[in-house]
Structures are given as structure tokens and as C-alpha cells.
Design a protein around this nucleic acid. Structure first.
Lengths: 226, 226
DNA sequence: GACCGTACGCTTACGGCGTAAGATTGTCAA
DNA sequence: TTGACAATCTTACGCCGTAAGCGTACGGTC
């Protein structure tokens, strides 16, 4: 009869699923940041009402946890062959890139959440690669924390400036003009260094600290203190 | 007459002020975290209605910015005398301690805010100390980022675990029991290392990475590459 | 075909949030 | 006493997360 048997809203035929909800959440947060991710808006994105999401996600915390897991799963695991430093460097840069792609993820690190499978897998892979490179259990433990701290810390530092620069390209110049140059001479110099055009072959700031740590670790390993 | 000239609600005689608002905000966030800091609750704490706060604070973002500035002002500036590594070590540890005292501050690093005077002063002091230790402008710039990344990154990593451990002391044991040991052997080992009692003379995880960076920097400076 | 449990989506409602707009009050100079 | 002005309070709006309960469509059993 007039009841639609076939043609009623064909796109809404795709049933909701946890995976679809998480993906839509990631997409929404990528575009507008975490503050634009509300249950209502996410539901709207999916052509659904807010409360329907709760059939696939325990609550908002669970949603965010799932999204963070998704992010971790995008990190490239360290290659088990070749130079350990090259492998770790690659993974660290991949992690950094992932965080730049999903900037909201950084603010989720702080809130305690249930264990995320992808995160545990990432950790085990990194720890394993360090062990196979000849580090003791103790040194591996320290090395892991040093590396992860740098990745997360550096990215966290970078993000606000990216946000500023995005909405106002001459942000640095403006900042310099307002800066009391005589009171804060070294900061003034620092900003100038930041404004220099990239020199060819210059490793970025991120890689600098990364290599510093990697070299230090290798030296400690070779010194054999253990 | 019967109107109270002197004795009416003596504690509410203290007028509100930006400083009092910020301090109360810090106190509230220290106790209950950022999520317990609402304008209404903060006002209640001060014996006042929410909207009154807006005479001393532009909006909530401004309040948080002021609180963060307060936090930065607690960091011990590097001593300009003696070994530069000792000075920077001291400042880094002080920064770390401050962040442990005001754990909510870490989640504010991400959101772009107007420049905070105390933060600029902190940066200038650190940069100046590095310059006076003989680093070039370029190296100083890199050194600063390496150090700050470690401080912030490491603390950010630590905080969720402190939160877990606080509300459940045997958290690590429980976690180990649920861990699929055969699938994640290195992570299992890692957790075991974490559970070892502190050995005497063992520098903590934070200091390990810190010293790694400081030594690496000194070596680069002495190599004179520049 | 009749029946029914289950899964999924919808509706309504509650208390809390940040804050815009305007009314009220306390303080002090003239 | 009066008037100004700033500090505070009141009210209201549109968001938020989510508890509770309702309607419906489907898959398996007789």
C-alpha cells in the first residue's frame, strides 16, 4: 500500500553500530574539536536521536575511550628488523603525525579510562623492540617513558600554536610587537628563531629532541652499565 | 539603628577581587579537578552568586587562564649561578612538582589562551639560563623544547595512573591479573618493573629522562657543532 | 498464520552548565 | 540629602549528559 516497503530513507537502512558511532565521533572531533562533540550532535550526524547512541556506547566516557583506542590503532608499530633507532624514530614520528591528525586525542590522555586494547598493543610492540635491541628490562622501562613523554609533551606544546597560526597567519609578528622586548630579551630571541624560514636539511624541533633521546639511550646501552 | 553598621556577616565584608576569585578557583580545582569547577560552585565557595564573578573575570576561559598563570608563577626559576645542569634540573623538578600539585593545569596546556605573564617570565628565565651556559640561539631553542616536552609529557603520562592508584591501591596487581600475559609479554614485564619497590639511590623515572636530555645537550654544546 | 522475546530507535524529562540582560543594593563624593 | 557608580543578585535562555519508559520491527517457535 502506501507503506514504504523498499524506498523509505534508503541511507538510514544502514544500522547503527559501535564502530559506526566511533568513526563518526572521530570525524566530528577531527573537524571541530572535542567541544563540538556532543551526544546530540553526533546523533544528528548519524541521522538519529541522541539516546539511540546509548545502545552502542555505555556513556560519553566510553565513547571517548573507544575513539582514543581508534587513534592508537593508527600508530605504525616499530619494525622488528634493522636499526632499532630507525625503527623507534619511525614509530615516534608516526605517533606524532597521528596526534596532529587527531588533535583532540591529546586532551584525553589525562582522563583515566579503561584499558584500550590498541594502546596496550602499541606499548607491548615498543617495549618488545627495545628489548630486542639489547636493553635490559630496567633500561627498556626508562627508555619507553622517555620516548613517550617526548612525543606527547612536544605535541601538546605545539598544538595551541598551530591553532593560533591557523586562524591568524601573522600571529608571531603580532606577538613580537606586543612583547616587552627589553624585559624578556631571550623570549624575544626565541620567537625570532621560530620565525626563521626552515633551513634545508634542518630536522624539525620534534626530531631534534627525539634524536637526542635515542642517541643518549644507545650510548647508555653500549656503556653496558646495563 | 537596627541596621547593622559593623557586625553584619563579617566574613562577607571581604570584597571579591580577581585575585580572590583565582585563588578560590585554584583551590577548588586542586581538590576536585577541573570538572568540579563551575562558575556556580566557585561562587558558592566565595559566598556569592555566579554572575558576580563576571565583574572580576571576563568569562570562564579568562578564569582558567588566570589560574594557569598562577600555576606558572609557582615554578622556581633557574639559578643564574653554578652548574647550568643543576640549575635546569632544579627548575624542571620544580615544574614537575607544581604540576603534581595542580594536576588540572596539564589539561589547560592544550587550549589556546592569551599570553600569561608568568609563563612568559618562566620561558625567558629558562632561555636566558641556557644562553648564559654557552648555548647558541639555535641550540637554546631546541634545548628548551626538549626539556619542556619531557616535563609536560612525563607528567601527563603519570597523572592518570596516580588517579587510579589513589582510589585503588592494588590497581597494578589487578591490571596484571587481567592482562593476557602471553599476548603482551613485554607489557607484562613493564608492569612488573613498575611494581618493584624503589631501590635506594634510584633516580625516579622522571629524573632519568631529564638527565638523559641534559647530558645529551651538554655533549652537543661541548662538541661545539654550535 | 499466530505469537512473543529481544534489539533498537524515539520521546520526554531532569538537573546542571555558561552567560546575556536587567534590577537591586551598598558606598561615597558633592 | 542626593546622585553616581560599581558590585552584586535575579531571571532567563539554550546548551549539555543521561535516566526512564514507549513503540516497533524482526527472527524463531509453535
Amino acid at each position: 500500500m502506501s507503506t514504504q516497503t523498499d524506498q523509505a530513507a534508503p541511507e538510514s537502512r544502514i544500522p547503527l553500530s559501535r564502530d559506526r558511532v566511533l568513526r563518526a565521533g572521530v570525524e566530528l572531533a577531527d573537524e571541530g574539536g572535542l567541544e563540538s562533540l556532543s551526544m546530540r550532535r553526533l546523533a544528528q550526524q548519524l541521522g538519529v536521536e541522541a539516546m539511540s547512541l546509548y545502545h552502542h556506547v555505555r556513556n560519553k566516557q566510553d565513547l571517548l575511550g573507544g575513539m582514543l583506542d581508534f587513534v592508537y590503532s593508527e600508530i605504525q608499530a616499530p619494525s622488528s628488523e634493522g636499526d632499532w633507532r630507525a625503527a623507534m624514530r619511525c614509530t615516534a614520528i608516526s605517533f606524532h603525525d597521528v596526534l596532529l591528525r587527531h588533535q583532540w586525542a591529546c586532551s584525553l590522555f589525562m582522563s583515566p579510562m579503561g584499558p584500550s586494547p590498541a594502546r596496550l598493543r602499541y606499548m607491548d610492540a615498543v617495549l618488545g623492540r627495545l628489548r630486542s635491541a639489547g636493553f635490559s628490562a630496567d633500561m627498556t622501562h626508562h627508555a619507553y617513558h622517555a620516548l613517550d613523554s617526548h612525543i606527547v609533551g612536544f605535541t601538546l606544546w605545539l598544538l595551541p600554536f598551530l591553532a593560533f597560526a591557523k586562524q591568524q597567519p601573522d600571529y608571531a609578528e603580532r606577538f613580537l610587537q606586543e612583547l616587552p622586548t627589553d624585559e624578556l630579551p631571550h623570549l624575544t630571541e626565541h620567537v625570532h628563531v621560530h620565525m626563521e624560514p626552515e633551513r634545508p636539511g634542518d630536522v624539525g624541533e620534534f626530531e631534534f629532541g627525539l634524536d637526542l633521546i635515542l642517541e643518549g639511550l644507545e650510548r647508555m646501552r653500549d656503556a653496558g652499565s646495563n
